[in-house]
Design a protein around this nucleic acid. Structure first.
Length: 847
DNA sequence: TATTCCCCGCCAGGGT
């Protein structure tokens, strides 16, 4: 492989030879290095084969049996990885065959691969599990010597990661000699990532290799002419268009990342409007576009044909685009890992650095970016934790294994408990799973649910129809409710949500994939369109998950606000500064390397926010690290209480629900809740009959799980969440490919199963799981508890307001937004902004 | 002119 600039490679090589399992933390943008690392891998595998005197066993067999698996989470990476691996194989003159079994591999190839597997295979977790569901897999994988998981951080923390863990646990049983390695981007908890990879009973010593320097990158903030003192969500977005265009013009090729698909379409349109001459050299890329279009865009980027691509995180991973020399991030990245990842998409050629320009979409995002910058400097990257023992995945695994390699109860227990995520599973829990797939539990009347039979103490699947249906349902990714959008000539554009399509009338024009499309009709689950002329009158909106500000960034924001509070209260020694509490936070939660710098004053990047912060301080208060700000605004319209834990959107939501629920148990009021990443607002047209100094009591830790579950209409949330669990555990299934059941139908059957279980089997562990997932995922209960602990250790600074403050204004807007249409909303907001602005100016003059 | 919500994977078997 020639000279390698990285020392760690030699180290990796040595440790590898020494026979470890391990994890390599490769910083982003190291595609080339990754490829080089394959060399040692292939070499190591080759030696033992030669020693073992491998000989051709049959005429057909011209290469050694399966030796290596390269697991990739992304189809788009498969071809790239194959290419790199092939180069290594050629370089070492190995008699190997290499194939990819994923993506568009034809069904005949897939069949042949099962009968005569190649020596090395590039595969996705889903395809691997599928392979394991065939009886011949036991023979196929027996010779396996190495498994490499690429982009491990991407799988970790999701059910896809769980699926991978379970597949690896099974492989360990068939091929105990196989070494396990993974490549991951930098994450905050590499040790746990390694443990998750190797499981609880690793067959070799472990090795963690922190590879390569994190590449430095230029970070630039594009600021508007002036900063609003009363920002509300998203308000500087497109007004920054001229600066963004200027930025794009200054480079050869740019990726413009936005946070939503809707935003992507709008920005694409806006840029093209401003620069019509870029038509054909500007592209749009997101998850709801047809695969064909996306592949075309990816190809065009890597060939350097495009000036810019506007995209969502659909381009976070994937092939390394050498021609891209800068990245623009519109709106907050919400986490440091994502920022680093995106910056790393640019500057891929040797000797070039990554360039990222940040476009805040409202004023507070400038703080978030600064917090991210500091966190990156201090090497604080978010953790990715594996899920704890999700039983739906285990149910699926139990059926898959019954298909591929029938097992005894004891064998399965050993296999499953060797997976890190299931390390604490009890025999009772596993027995429950086995019983559930065998008898169907309370669904036993339906033969479809008696999937597995136990014969001579071994669990297996007898019926071909069950086997077939299960194989088609393997995987943990559950589809959204989408309709295909097709041109009248049949070419596919992408997907829109049913709810969006249902609002369209024939003749309506909407934007998708950067094109104006005119609706012809909606038929057979597809939206048929033709090319539209003129301006679109709708842009689809997709309802995705929300991305709360990460814990790390939230803490960073709190620290920065503390710094500004300190700065604005005057130099140390003056009365203003002396009134504040100690300089260090009383809680451990905020102790971090940035604390020492707390006295350094306002970071350069935050100077622009000084006016806004000054106003917040004058009209209310700027909270220090050891303070919690509570505001109350009473008016003729009603009573509003605001609390600012700065802990991300989902925590705000949980706290709001908890508080409203507990108050309304004593006082029957209709309280509305609005939230953002920083805080929450309770609003009631009548006066809320509580004193603010009793708030800590209303927010006490005892019994929060029960209260939150009852407050959030949790049954409904659980019911909805149960759909995914039902799909993964095989309780519902979509129809055959090509004529899949409509999503509404799928939801209906999930609801039916849910109701049956709830009535006849309330202790069903899958129902329990659904509740736990609502708590853990949607409400981030652990984070919420942490936030409560922190809040209780803080001093509560309570302020009665005369007018809305910079902190409370966005929350107030959020509340009003739900009630009135967007046009009158914008008018109303502008009016309120104007009034507040005038008050602020007057106020400033007076002082 | 717009004023929020990411991403990821997968079938079988016979005929041409």
């Amino acid at each position: 492989m020639g000279q390698q600039p990285f020392d760690w490679q030699r180290e990796a090589w040595t440790k590898y030879l020494a026979g470890h399992h391990g994890l390599i933390l490769a910083s982003t943008g190291m595609g080339k290095t990754r490829a080089a690392w394959l060399g040692p891998l292939a070499q190591w595998i080759k030696d033992p084969i030669e020693e073992s005197g491998w000989t051709r066993r049959s005429k057909r067999e011209v290469s050694p049996p399966l030796q290596a698996l390269w697991i990739t989470p992304l189809r788009a990476l498969a071809a790239d990885s194959c290419h790199a691996l092939q180069e290594c194989i050629d370089g070492l003159q190995l008699p190997w065959t290499l194939e990819q079994r994923t993506g568009d591999t034809s069904s005949s190839t897939k069949l042949r691969q099962r009968q005569a597997p190649p020596t090395a295979m590039v595969i996705t977790p889903e395809s691997l599990t599928l392979l394991l569901s065939y009886p011949e897999s036991r023979d196929t994988f027996r010779s396996l010597r190495a498994v490499v998981v690429d982009e491990w951080h991407e799988l970790l923390g999701s059910k896809r990661g769980i699926q991978t863990e379970l597949a690896l646990a099974h492989l360990a049983r068939i091929a105990p000699n196989a070494q396990r390695w993974a490549l991951s981007a930098t994450i905050g908890n590499p040790d746990q990532a390694l443990n998750t990879l190797v499981g609880t009973r690793p067959s070799r010593p472990l090795s963690l290799i922190a590879g390569g320097q994190q590449r430095a990158f230029d970070l630039q903030v594009l600021l508007p002419e002036h900063i609003e003192r009363f920002p509300w969500a998203g308000h500087i977005g497109l007004s920054m268009l001229p600066r963004v265009i200027e930025q794009i013009e200054g480079a050869n090729s740019t990726l413009v990342f936005t946070n939503t698909r809707n935003q992507t379409e709008l920005w694409y349109r806006a840029i093209l409007h401003a620069r019509p001459q870029w038509a054909g050299r500007l592209a749009v890329h997101h998850g709801s576009l047809a695969h064909e279009l996306r592949t075309w865009v990816e190809q065009a980027v890597s060939e350097g044909k495009l000036i810019a691509v506007v995209c969502t995180s659909s381009l976070d991973l994937g092939v390394d685009f050498a021609p891209v020399d800068q990245v623009i991030q519109v709106g907050s990245p919400k986490g440091t890992a994502r920022l680093v990842q995106r910056a790393g998409r640019s500057g891929h050629s040797p000797g070039r650095s990554s360039k990222l320009a940040f476009v805040p979409s409202h004023a507070f995002e400038i703080i978030e970016l600064e917090a991210a910058r500091l966190a990156i400097e201090a090497k604080q990257i978010e953790e990715r934790r594996a899920l704890r023992a999700p039983l739906d995945c285990l149910v699926q695994h139990a059926v898959t294994m019954a298909l591929g390699s029938p097992y005894t109860r004891q064998e399965m227990f050993e296999e499953v408990s060797s997976a890190y995520s299931y390390r604490d599973i009890t025999q009772e829990q596993l027995d429950w799973v086995l019983d559930f797939v065998t008898t169907g539990g309370c669904l036993h009347a339906y033969p479809d649910y008696r999937r597995v039979v136990c014969e001579f103490e071994r669990y297996c699947v007898k019926e071909e129809s069950i086997a077939k249906r299960h194989r088609m349902a393997i995987g943990t990714i559950t589809a959204d409710m989408m309709l295909q959008v097709q041109m009248m000539n049949g070419s596919k554009i992408g997907f829109v949500e049913e709810s969006f399509a249902s609002k369209l009338k024939p003749g309506d024009r909407f934007l998708l994939g950067g094109r104006v499309l005119q609706l012809e009709w909606i038929r057979e689950g597809a939206v048929w369109v033709k090319k539209g002329k003129g301006e679109p009158n709708a842009v689809p909106r997709w309802l995705g998950g929300n991305l709360p500000l990460s814990s790390e960034l939230s803490a960073g924001v709190r620290r920065l606000i503390d710094r500004m509070a300190r700065k604005l209260s005057g130099p140390p020694g003056e009365p203003g500064a002396a009134t504040g509490a100690g300089t260090q936070s009383a809680t451990g939660a905020d102790a971090g390397p940035n604390n020492q710098k707390a006295s350094a004053g306002i970071p350069e990047g935050l100077k622009v926010l000084e006016g806004l912060m000054r106003l917040q301080r004058r009209w209310s208060h700027l909270p220090r690290l050891d303070e919690l700000l509570v505001e109350r605004h009473r008016s003729r319209e009603g009573d509003a209480i605001m609390i600012y834990p700065f802990e991300g959107r989902s925590v705000s939501e949980g706290l709001g629900a908890l508080l409203a629920y507990r108050i309304s148990k004593f006082h029957p009021l209709s309280i509305s809740i609005s939230v953002n990443d920083y805080g929450l607002m309770l609003f009631c047209p009548e006066s809320i009959p509580i004193k603010l100094d009793t708030l800590p009591y209303w927010l006490k830790r005892d019994g929060i799980e029960e209260d939150i579950l009852s407050s959030l209409n949790a049954t409904e949330m659980t019911r909805r969440g149960f759909r995914d669990i039902a799909r993964i555990s095989g309780l519902i299934h979509h129809g055959m490919p090509g004529r899949s059941k409509s999503m509404r139908h799928l939801q209906a059957s999930a609801t039916m199963v849910f109701d049956v279980l709830k009535e006849y089997d309330p202790e069903n562990l899958l129902l329990h799981q659904a509740r736990q997932e609502v708590l853990a995922d949607q409400l981030q209960i652990d984070r919420l508890k942490g936030a409560l602990d922190r809040m209780h250790s803080q001093r509560w600074e309570v302020r009665e307001l005369d007018q809305w403050t910079p902190f409370s204004f966005p929350l107030m807007v959020e509340r009003v937004r739900d009630r009135i249409g967007s046009e009158s909303l914008a008018d109303r907001i502008r009016k309120m902004q104007g009034q507040l602005e005038a008050t602020a100016a007057w106020d400033e003059q007076a002082t």
